[in-house]
C-alpha cells in the first residue's frame, strides 16, 4: 500500500529565514548582509548613472586643484571598476563556453586568440567616433578598458578549467552533480584562483590603457581638452603636454597610491583567500 503523502511544511517567516541551502543554512545575518549589499549596489548604480550622464571634463589644465586630482582618482577608479565588473561577467561564461570540451576549444580558441591579439588601442578611434555620436564619452573609455581587461580573464580561466583534476570530474559524475549544480559547486569555485590571477593582470592592463582611454580629444577631429574625461590618465597626459609639472607629479603619485592601496587591500587578501580553492 502506498504511504500517505507527507503534508507540506507550513510557510513561516522563521522557517524561510533559516531554510537549508546546499552548503549552508541561511541565517538572519545572511539576509541582513544581502540587503546591505543590495542597498550599496543601488547607490553605486545611481551615483554612476548621474556621473556618466554629466561627466566632468577638463576645461583648463592651468586651474587644476588638489580636489580635482582626488575627483580624477575617483573617476578613473569608477571607470576601471565598471569595466572590470563587465569584463568578469562576460569573461567567465565566455571561458566556460570555450573551455567546455576539447572539441569546442579546438574550434573557438584560435578565434579568441586572434581577437585578443588585435591591439585594443588600434580600434579606439573607431570606438570613440561611435560613442561620441551618441554623446557617450564615458562609455567609450569604459568599453576600451573593458576590452583590454577581458582577454586576460578569459585565457586565465580557460587555463584554470584545464587544471580541474580528472578524479574531481569523475566524482561529479558518480555523485550525480550535473548541469548548473556542477557549474555552481565545482567548476566556478575551481576557477576562483584563476579569476583572481586574471583580474590582477586585467587591472594591470587597465591601468596602462586608462591613460590613453581618457584622452578622447586626440581621437576626435578638431578635438579640444574639454572633450577629455576627467581622470588620472587625462590629467597625466594633458598636464605633461601643458607643462604643468606639479599637476603631473601629483597625478602620478595619486595613481601610484591607488595601485598600491588596491594591491594591499584587495589583491593580496584575495590571492590568499583564493588559495583555499586550489587543488593540491
Amino acid at each position: 500500500m502506498k504511504a500517505p503523502a507527507k503534508p507540506a511544511a507550513r510557510f513561516t517567516v522563521r522557517r524561510y529565514l533559516r531554510r537549508p541551502h546546499l552548503l549552508y543554512e541561511t541565517t538572519l545575518a545572511h539576509h541582513l548582509v544581502s540587503v546591505a549589499v543590495a542597498i550599496v549596489l543601488c547607490v553605486v548604480i545611481v551615483v554612476l548613472g548621474v556621473h556618466f550622464a554629466n561627466p566632468k571634463n577638463i576645461f583648463d589644465i592651468n586651474k587644476i586643484s588638489f580636489r580635482d586630482v582626488l575627483t580624477a582618482s575617483a573617476n578613473t577608479f569608477y571607470r576601471m571598476l565598471l569595466a572590470y565588473l563587465l569584463a568578469v561577467v562576460a569573461a567567465i561564461p565566455l571561458a566556460m563556453v570555450i573551455g567546455i570540451s576539447a572539441k569546442v576549444q579546438r574550434l573557438l580558441l584560435p578565434i579568441a586568440d586572434i581577437l585578443q591579439s588585435v591591439p585594443v588601442l588600434a580600434f579606439f578611434p573607431v570606438v570613440v567616433v561611435f560613442f561620441t555620436a551618441y554623446h557617450a564619452f564615458e562609455l567609450a573609455a569604459v568599453f576600451v578598458i573593458f576590452v583590454s581587461m577581458l582577454w586576460n580573464i578569459v585565457f586565465t580561466v580557460i587555463g584554470g578549467l584545464q587544471t580541474i583534476p580528472d578524479d574531481i570530474k569523475s566524482a561529479a559524475i558518480v555523485f550525480n552533480v550535473t548541469g548548473l549544480e556542477k557549474f555552481w559547486y565545482i567548476t566556478l569555485p575551481a576557477v576562483v584562483p584563476f579569476v583572481v590571477t586574471g583580474s590582477l593582470l586585467a587591472w594591470a592592463q587597465g591601468w596602462t590603457v586608462v591613460i590613453v582611454a581618457e584622452v578622447l580629444h586626440t581621437y576626435i577631429p578638431h578635438g579640444t581638452l574639454s572633450q577629455d574625461l576627467l581622470g588620472l590618465g587625462s590629467l597625466m597626459v594633458d598636464s605633461n603636454a601643458g607643462g604643468q609639472t606639479s599637476v603631473f607629479v601629483a597625478t602620478l603619485v595619486a595613481m601610484i597610491l591607488l595601485v598600491t592601496v588596491m594591491n594591499l587591500a584587495v589583491w593580496q587578501p584575495l590571492l590568499r583567500f583564493s588559495q583555499r580553492f586550489r587543488f593540491d
Binding site: 583534476p165 578524479d167 569523475s170 550525480n176 580553492f277 593540491d280
Partner: peptide, 15 residues
C-alpha cells in the same frame, strides 16, 4: 548510483 573512493581522494578543497 554507487559510492566511490578515489586514489587522489577527490575532495573539494573549499569545503
Amino acid at each position: 548510483h554507487v559510492g566511490m573512493v578515489f586514489q587522489s581522494n577527490a575532495l573539494l578543497p573549499w569545503l
